[in-house]
Simulated assay, not measured.
Amino acid sequence: MARSLRADAQANHERLLDVAARVFAREGADTSLKTIAAEAGVGIGTLYRRFPTREDLIEATYRNETTRLCESAPRLLERHPPVEAFEVWMESFVDYMLTKQGMSDALPAILATRDGLRLHSRQALGEAVGTLLAAGVAAGRLRSDSSASDVLMALGGITLISGHEHQRALASRLISLLLDGLAARPLPD
């Protein structure tokens, strides 16, 4: 059983992961770990105590960002109507993928060597999308013939296209089109 961290150590851990996500998205996986530590306001020794290798930090950042995104779905539904919650979540998904792209050189090797990490991430993301889709269907706002897998594939495509074009605003426009395509159709007379 893992030991729980002191409050200050836990805060440092979380801050390191938050900063790492931003820095990896901005500068890529080869960025200086000293830069991450400095931006997090901790010494490099603190970073290495928590994450002995660059790969450990990348994996922890990936896990943290995936968990954060997936856990946001039910909270968004508490604060927003289903379609609006889904749109906010999709925008967050694009940002998540941009962070992942920043780690893209190192992430495939990490995913290949960490048992079940890729599958776990896909399942968690599918469950989050499924939760949002089900809420939209129950409210009569989204099509009942849509699958979480199809939505994730579409979002992946949106992220690739907008990332390749370096146009974050393009992703938002394409998300709007995707939501229009997911909208419930009126029953024929």
Rank of each mutant, 00 (worst) to 15 (best):
Y48A: 06
G41L: 12
W89E: 09
D105E: 11
E59N: 06
R185Q: 14
G43F: 00
S144C: 07
D8C: 00
Q10H: 00
I36R: 01
A37D: 03
P52F: 15
A21F: 03
K100Q: 10
E87N: 08
A112G: 04
Y48L: 12
S162L: 05
E165C: 00
S92T: 10
A7I: 08
S72I: 09
V42Q: 07
G28Y: 15
V94I: 15
G136K: 15
A7N: 01
V151Q: 02
A124C: 12
V129I: 15
V151R: 03
S104E: 14
E127W: 05
V19L: 13
L77R: 05
V94C: 13
A106D: 09
Y48G: 02
R54P: 08
L107N: 05
A7M: 07
E55D: 15
H80D: 06
D95P: 01
L5V: 04
R26W: 01
S176G: 15
D18I: 01
L98N: 05
V42R: 05
T61K: 09
A183I: 02
D189T: 02
L107W: 04
R15N: 14
R168K: 08
T159R: 10
Y62T: 08
D18H: 09
V83W: 05
A37I: 03
A169Y: 01
L152M: 10
L160V: 09
S149G: 09
K100R: 14
G181Y: 03
R79A: 12
G126K: 03
G140P: 02
M97R: 12
L47K: 08
R185C: 02
